[in-house]
Design a protein around this nucleic acid. Structure first.
Lengths: 133, 133
DNA sequence: CGGAATCCTAAGAGATACTG
DNA sequence: CAGTATCTCTTAGGATTCCG
């Protein structure tokens, strides 16, 4: 993990390779970030609840994702000193502001998966036919 | 590259690990997909134009990204048989429908990079102080 | 319960060089 | 111009096991 160079105090340009905006894009590009952020939109959640909601995450990976999001100030991590342990994750205002864009992405994915799947199948079939010729 | 299993004909559930929606999320999670799709929002572009617009992409990687997007039916690739060669990439209607969500993500990234950077710095400083104690 | 520690590998990604 | 061909290498991601 590298730090963002210097203080950046204005809207960035994602097309510029030297713009730290790329770091944010990379985080969003993370395999689990979208799902975690969207899951937390419903309210604070415990580790196990998140793990159950986000199907298929290994605990290690979930921890990594949560730590990264905490570092970026998108969520807070609150530990309750009790037995058994209890840790609650809650989105910050900054994190909440990201929910809408990511929800939009998720909805797009869920509603266009059929088209994408069909396109893929057609493309692969064409490629196969071309290879046989 | 794996094919999406079977035909999926309804809105998916991104939280389900067995839902092909995950494949779409993975594609969006690709480092360059967002930038390429957003770049093409302005209209059809040639390979070199894309390469210039999306700063920092290696030609190989750009090709990979474009092929993947073509396979998913998000853009079309048109080759002009002439010398020198000319290849134009153009978004499909499906691709265009993805522009809005991804633009929203890019805008969020560009406008909140300052906050994120500050949070990161603060987090790292705290971690450093804790390590020294 | 909520991780931390360890190990592993698949592949995303980049650099470089070359070509139809 | 628009790629392809290699090679290398980092690291995200996952499986497993153990700990406070």
């Amino acid at each position: 993990m590298e730090t963002l160079r210097g203080v950046f105090d204005g809207p960035g340009d994602a097309f510029d390779p030297d713009c730290p905006t790329r770091a944010v894009l990379d985080r969003i590009g993370d395999k689990w970030t979208v799902l975690v952020v969207v899951a937390l939109a419903d309210g604070p959640m415990r580790f196990s609840a998140l793990r159950a909601r986000v199907g298929g995450v290994a605990p290690k990976v979930l921890t990594q994702t949560l730590r990264a999001l905490e570092r970026d100030g998108l969520l807070t991590r609150e530990v309750f000193a009790q037995v058994p342990p209890k840790v609650v994750y809650e989105p910050t205002p900054l994190g909440r502001s990201l929910e809408a864009p990511l929800e939009a992405v998720r909805h797009w994915a869920e509603h266009n998966i059929a088209d994408v799947a069909a396109n893929r199948a057609a493309y692969d079939e064409r490629a196969l036919a071309a290879a046989q010729a």
